[in-house]
Design a protein around this nucleic acid. Structure first.
Lengths: 195, 195
DNA sequence: GCACGACTGTAGCGAACGTTCCAACCAGTA
DNA sequence: TACTGGTTGGAACGTTCGCTACAGTCGTGC
């Protein structure tokens, strides 16, 4: 049992533990028994709360990761008024989480989304919604900063995608540098669209 | 048996099939028996060529994917003299492969790299080398185009990372658009460093 | 005190996992 | 023809997988 145990409800503990495990190992490598063990929850309780099993739990975990990552993004974006500086703040925050977790906690859904690609539609759908959600947060920031509407959605898309790629690189390289570089380049790109 | 069968040597068939399966399903979801079945190779032959088993085969598959993706990148980069246009050519080629495979064939090593992160050092190392390899190809292109040396490595890093993120997005969204947008933005970013 | 729904503990199902073992096979060489 | 080294086919190992079944425990409302 860890911090998560005994403070939240059983169902919430399951979702949170699943989300963390899938972030680090992906969908296939994360077993139901491992989840119930690490969450301090009976195996039968998993099927009590998620009657149709692993997939249902995984979808709930992706949705949870969606909200959690959105909170991180929102926090980082809110701290800076300039949109370029806000992107740099994002990369700094992501780099901190990554380093502090010994390069284990990257994007919480990428591994799951990739290995279930074309095989588990429910999970795919949840992942698609998460990316869309995160993009909309960045788009809002750009819009408020006065970026022209015809550039906002595309810029937000590349911003999130570059963050994703840089975080993957940082995780594999065990280095914060890819994220720092991405932050600088994204700021420069966004500034080139300011009027 | 498919195209790969009976034309290449047994060992090469195994590596190629493993690479393709891991590209689509990741490491954990790809079974030794599935590999031997799809490659048209006896199960015992897997252990004949790769005595220490699945991990050793996976490392060989990642190295194979490294070379294969590098060929794609080299081809796309060579077709254009302008470095920005070359990046757009890359995104176009990746988008084509992705669409033609029904959005299944994205980056051949991302899924594997992520789900083995911090758990299978050999695979991690092979993935690290692959990313480094691909970066060096882009860096060469930028250098030859006259980008200042102090900008080359960072730009190459962000270019590869943005490609990775955009390809992930394209795969999840079932759309070529994220890659097209990334191409335009990368070209703009690189141009802003031209002298 | 009692009944009831929520949750747990345990045991076990069939299937698939990675791996091992070994006899059989099939070149090529002598 | 006999031998040899590389390769195969098939059976089986122990373990783990996702999942099911069911009796038992617990806190709450009557």
């Amino acid at each position: 049992m860890n911090d998560v145990t005994r403070t939240l409800g059983t169902r919430e503990r399951l979702v949170q533990t699943t989300s963390r495990l899938m972030q680090r190992q992906g969908y296939e490598a994360t077993g139901i028994k491992q989840i119930s063990r690490e969450a301090g929850v009976a195996l039968s309780s998993v099927y009590h709360f998620f009657p149709s099993g692993k997939q249902e739990l995984a979808v709930a975990a992706v949705r949870h990761a969606d909200r959690e990552f959105a909170d991180i993004l929102r926090e980082a974006l809110a701290g800076e008024s300039d949109p370029g500086a806000a992107m740099i703040a994002c990369t700094r925050l992501l780099a901190t989480y990554l380093r502090d977790s010994d390069w284990l906690d990257g994007c919480p859904i990428t591994a799951t989304a990739l290995e279930t690609s074309g095989r588990v539609p429910d999970i795919q759908q949840a992942a698609r919604e998460a990316f869309e959600h995160w993009r909309s947060l960045v788009a809002d920031k750009l819009r408020r900063a006065g970026i022209a509407e015809q550039d906002v959605l595309d810029l937000a898309r590349t911003a999130i995608n570059t963050l994703e790629g840089a975080e993957l690189d940082a995780q594999v390289s065990h280095s914060e540098e890819p994220l720092q570089i991405a932050g600088r380049h994204l700021a420069r790109l966004i500034n080139s669209y300011r009027r």
